[in-house]
């Protein structure tokens, strides 16, 4: 029986702290949302939306702010899954599914592999560059500009159209056959290229 190795302490505490923090923030919010629903101020989809909203943004902030890269990757997964929920709210079954599969599965795993291969945890944990303050300013300004642009416009008050997976599939492989095939070829080429780039040049190199 193999002896179980304990997690290194630098993994332990932040996770527990993060979990506690998330719970402390999320629980009152959840309570408020449920209360609002019970009172009848917001509808059920809206409750779901605001929950997903919170998860997506919290995950995004975690992705860009956590200093531990593995934690950041974990936060990214939360964001991507939250976005899948948003897709469902927008009535897109298939896209939500694709989001979970491709992002929640494939991309995340790729990234974690990348982290492993580059020994990222061994790097000195200074994960942010010197221009962080500038980046912060730019991000705030950009958010303001977009918010003004998007919300300043008067959008028609209609609901989202629900498109089922079957309908999506029919149209995708009917009208857009050529496009989907082209994307397939593109993916193929891109991944072959990735392989070519990442492959070691010489036996000595691969031996390292």
């Amino acid at each position: 029986m193999q002896e179980r190795t304990a997690l290194p302490p630098q993994f332990d505490r932040p996770i527990m702290l993060g979990g506690l923090l998330a719970g402390a923030v999320a629980t009152p919010l959840l309570v408020v949302l449920v209360a609002l629903r019970v009172v009848g101020l917001i509808s059920s989809p809206e409750v779901v939306f605001w929950m997903a909203f919170g998860v997506v943004l919290a995950g995004a902030l975690g992705t860009v702010m956590l200093s531990n890269i593995v934690h950041a990757a974990l936060a990214l997964v939360f964001t991507l899954l939250g976005i899948a929920a948003i897709y469902l709210l927008l009535g897109q079954e298939f896209l939500a599914l694709a989001q979970v599969l491709v992002y929640g599965g494939g991309v995340t795993i790729l990234i974690v592999f990348g982290l492993m291969l580059t020994n990222a945890t061994e790097d000195p944990i200074v994960s942010d560059g010197a221009q962080k303050p500038f980046a912060f300013g730019v991000g705030i300004l950009l958010a303001l500009v977009f918010a003004v642009a998007l919300l300043g416009h008067h959008w028609p008050a209609v609901g989202p159209a629900v498109i089922s997976g079957a309908e999506f599939g029919e149209r995708l492989f009917g009208e857009y056959t050529l496009a989907i095939l082209t994307v397939g070829v593109l993916l193929d080429i891109a991944l072959s290229g990735a392989l070519l780039i990442a492959r070691p040049d010489s036996p000595e190199e691969s031996a390292e």
């Binding site: 989809p45 943004l57 998007l150």
Partner: peptide, 27 residues
């Protein structure tokens, strides 16, 4: 019914956060 503005706001904030991340991160 969820107004479209909610989604747009979410997208704008998400984009800005991503942008910040691109500029601020080293790895």
């Amino acid at each position: 019914m969820i107004p479209i503005e909610n989604f747009l706001l979410l997208s704008a904030l998400l984009f800005a956060i991503g942008f910040y991340g691109v500029l601020a991160r080293r790895s």
